[in-house]
């Protein structure tokens, strides 16, 4: 998978592309970990993520915990039907702010 980080005045945007699975989730976690200290809002653009296993849920759980602890904000953008389903049946979906597109994210 590929990730691209862009720092905005109000948040950090992390655009992800490819598979998030047991192999790539630790890479994503390592990419995100340094951002928790600097950003009070993280926007994860997942519109180009075609597949996510429970290893990805673990990363989302970590992001959620970090941002909740500092009263920050996590936004997930562009979830596919399959990612939405995985997050819904595991009870994750309701705890995240989701938006269909980046343009829909307001700060």
């Amino acid at each position: 998978m590929k990730t691209e980080i862009s720092r905005q005045p109000t948040h950090v945007l992390v655009a992800c592309e490819g598979h998030i699975d047991g192999k790539t989730a630790p890479e994503l976690q390592a990419t995100l970990a340094p951002l928790f200290g600097e950003a009070s809002a993280i926007v994860l653009d997942l519109s180009k993520v075609d597949y996510m296993s429970s290893a990805g849920l673990r990363v989302l759980l970590l992001v959620h915990r970090q941002l909740v602890a500092k009263k920050g904000r996590t936004v997930l953008v562009g979830l596919s039907e399959s990612l939405t389903e995985t997050m819904r049946i595991t009870g994750f979906l309701q705890f995240f702010e989701t938006q269909p597109t980046l343009a829909a994210v307001k700060f």
Binding site: S54, A55, L57, R58, L61, H64, R65, I89, T90, F95
Partner: peptide, 21 residues
């Protein structure tokens, strides 16, 4: 703990749950 807030969740067991489902 699927209906608990994420802050109180363990991280294990979700994969097999998804597999069965």
């Amino acid at each position: 703990d699927l209906d608990k807030p994420l802050e109180e969740r363990g991280v294990g067991g979700l994969g097999i749950f998804l597999a069965r489902r």
